[in-house]
Simulated assay, not measured.
Amino acid sequence: MGGTPGWEQEVLRTIALAAIREQRAARRWRIFFRLVWLIIFLAIVAGAYFFLAADKSAGGERHTALISVRGEISAKSEASSENIDAALEAAFADPNTAGIVLQINSPGGSPVEAGIVYRNIRRLRQAHPKVPLYAVIGDVGASGAYYIAAAADRIYVDPASIVGSIGVIMENFGFTGLMDKLGVERRVQTAGENKAIGDPFSPENPVQKQHIQQMLDQIHQQFIKAVKDGRGARLHETPDMFSGLFWTGEQSVRMGLADGFGDADSVARDVVKQKDVVDFSIKESLSDRVARRFGTAMGASAFGAVLDGAATRLR
C-alpha cells in the first residue's frame, strides 16, 4: 500500500485522542449538570427551610421572643450593642411577638455599650407599647448587665443569682517601684501635659487622679439615674445600694432590684403566656470569632494595651 510509512499509527493515534477528548468533554458536562442539579436541590432545601422558619415567625403563630446577653458586654463581643439592638429590632418588628425575654448571664462590661442598649430598649418599648420586655437573670446580672436589665418592664431572677454591682471601675497598674529596683528609667515625651495620664510607668499625678475620679463619678451618676428611672418606686433604696456591692437574687427581690423569681421558660409560659419560644439572638460564628481574635492580636500594640487596661468598665 502507498503512503508515508507509519501512517496507520498516526491515524489510530488521532482517532484515540479524539475519543479521549470526547470522553473528557462528556465527563465535564456530566459533572456540570450534576453540580447544577445539586445547586437546585440545595436552593429548594434552603427555600423550604426559610419558608418554614418565616411561617413559624410570621405565619400566625404567636411566640415569646428570646434574646441572650451572655459574657462581657463590649463592642468586640457577642454581647455588643450592635448585636443586641439588631435582635431587639427584629423581635419587636415581628407581628407575632407576644413578649420578649432578655436572658442575661453577664458580669457587665462597657458603660457605653450598656447605655446604648438601655436607651434602645426604652425607645422600642415606647414604639411598641403592647409588647412587654422582661429581663431574666441567670447566674449573674451585674453592673453593665444590670444597667441593661433596668430598662425592662420587670426583672426575674433565681434566688441564687448574683445581682447589682452598681458602680464603675477603671483598672491599671503602677510599676515605678519595680523600675527603681531594677534601675530602669522611663522616658516619655508628650505634646500636652496630660497626654500620658494613667501611664503605669510614671508616678501617679494627684491632679490627673482627681480628673479620672470625677469622670468615674459622673458615669456612676448616669448609671444610678438609669436604674432609678427604670425601677422607679419599686426600689427600696439603702445606703449601700449604689456602692458597687452585689446581692443574691433573693435579696435583690426584697430590695426592689428585681420583681420575682423565674427563668426564661417559666416567664414565657406563665408571664408572657406564650410557651413557644423563638430565639432572635445574633450569635457570632466560628469564623467571625477567629477573624476577630486574629485581628485583635495582629493590631495590638504596647500603647493600645495600656489604654485597654485602663478602660472604664461596669463590673
Rank of each mutant, 00 (worst) to 15 (best):
G141P: 06
T176H: 05
Y134V: 05
L124F: 06
H128A: 06
Q126C: 11
N194I: 12
V157A: 03
V131Y: 00
N172I: 14
N194A: 12
F173A: 13
D180V: 01
G138A: 09
N172S: 09
V184W: 15
R122N: 14
R154T: 07
V168F: 04
L178F: 10
I169G: 06
P129I: 01
N172H: 12
V184M: 07
K181Q: 10
A127G: 02
V136W: 03
Y118K: 09
Y134H: 06
A135V: 14
N120C: 07
G183N: 02
G164Q: 02
P132A: 10
D153W: 00
A151W: 01
R186G: 01
I169T: 10
R119P: 06
F173N: 14
R123C: 11
P132Y: 01
G174D: 15
N172Q: 14
A142S: 15
P200M: 15
N172F: 11
K181L: 13
R125Y: 00
N172A: 13
T176K: 08
G167A: 08
K130E: 15
K181G: 05
I148D: 07
R125P: 02
A152P: 06
A191I: 08
Q189L: 14
Y147T: 12
D199Y: 14
I166H: 00
D199K: 10
V163M: 05
N120D: 12
P200L: 15
G141C: 12
A191W: 13
Q126R: 11
N172K: 09
N172V: 13
G144I: 04
I148G: 12
L182S: 07
Y147I: 07
V188L: 09
V184Q: 04
G138S: 13
R123L: 09
V131T: 14
S165Q: 09
P159V: 01
V168D: 00
T190V: 11
K130T: 11
G198S: 12
V136E: 00
D153R: 01
V184H: 04
A191M: 10
G167C: 02
A127M: 06
R122H: 14
R125A: 09
A160N: 11
E171V: 07
P129D: 06
R122F: 02
I162S: 07
A149S: 14
R119W: 03
R154Q: 09
M179T: 02
A127E: 10
I166A: 01
E193I: 13
L133E: 05
I162V: 13
Y146W: 04
S165P: 00
G144W: 01
